[in-house]
């Protein structure tokens, strides 16, 4: 269960849990027991210490989109297990388990909605589903969302929570990088804006493809943003990593993102960006 702090002491905890299992959740930072319904009101921020609780895709959508404006776009795709991959466990089993825990087909949820009255096409990743990794279904769903946004001429917002490529789909997952970038180019040709929101984590093949090609990039405080894992970097280079390495602040300092905002401000930040980008002020 990875826990990560950034320089401002915010942290995100990630746990596999079923959607509505318990009434109470314990904050891993301060030990406070928080009523689950209370957390919804606080954007899943601990009311006592300010720590961030992990967000599922559905929780993220609810925290960003205007009430009662969200309409899912369900393609119903599920992974074919294209390599018939088996490591210590068959990939098929991992898929079944992730589907049972999350109630999702795969690691991304796509839909339409409004933020502050402005329409958008939204793709939100769910880290619980095999680390939010991008395989053939994530690639397909993001491509569909980009094409739909181009067709409807409404801004596309991608909320990233991904460890990278889906290793169990081998070169098939690698192709999803090209696929999502191809679809992103289509959106660009339609002159429709694309906003990326980086959360914990935004890494690997997801970051090295569609996620890095947004017009505007907003990072949530507590995000991890980077191409290679810290352990790989240490092992390859023998370098000691700076303390703030791959945090949202680090990304801002190195010109990788436009803004870093705390979770409670993310919705307003998105609304501000949409206001200036959407260009529907003339009617």
């Amino acid at each position: 269960m990875p826990i990560r702090r950034d320089s401002k002491g915010r942290y995100v905890e990630v746990e596999l849990r079923r959607a509505e299992e318990t009434l109470w959740l314990r904050c891993r930072e301060c030990g406070e027991l928080v009523f689950r319904r209370k957390l919804k009101e606080t954007n899943h921020i601990c009311p006592r210490c300010g720590a961030y609780f992990f967000l599922t895709a559905q929780e993220r959508i609810a925290s960003l989109v205007d009430r009662d404006t969200y309409a899912p776009i369900e393609s119903g795709y599920a992974s074919d297990d294209p390599l018939a991959f088996v490591d210590r466990r068959p990939y098929r089993e991992r898929l079944d388990e992730a589907q049972a825990i999350t109630g999702l087909n795969d690691a991304v949820v796509v839909g339409r909605g409004m933020v502050d009255g402005r329409p958008l096409l939204l793709a939100v990743m769910d880290f619980r589903f095999i680390g939010g990794s991008m395989g053939q279904v994530v690639g397909e769903e993001i491509a569909v969302a980009l094409e739909r946004a181009a067709e409807l001429r409404i801004p596309f917002v991608l909320v990233v929570a991904s460890g990278g490529a889906r290793v169990q789909e081998g070169a098939v997952s690698l192709m999803q990088m090209a696929k999502t970038v191809a679809a992103r180019n289509l959106l660009a040709a339609a002159n429709v804006p694309f906003i990326a929101v980086f959360t914990y984590p935004s890494t690997g093949g997801m970051l090295a493809s569609v996620a890095s090609l947004a017009d505007v990039t907003i990072a949530e405080l507590g995000a991890m943003i980077g191409f290679a894992g810290p352990r790989v970097i240490e092992q390859t280079t023998g370098q000691r990593l700076p303390e703030s390495f791959q945090t949202a602040t680090f990304a801002l300092e190195h010109g990788v993102v436009d803004q870093v905002v705390p979770r409670e401000s993310l919705r307003a930040e998105l609304a501000r960006a949409l206001l200036v980008l959407s260009g529907d002020h003339n009617g």
Partner: peptide, 19 residues
């Protein structure tokens, strides 16, 4: 995979090259 690669946005450079 190096610190400098990350500082210079290796992920963005790869994405742009694909694009």
């Amino acid at each position: 995979p190096g610190v400098q690669s990350e500082e210079q946005n290796i992920a963005g450079a790869i994405a742009q090259s694909i694009s």
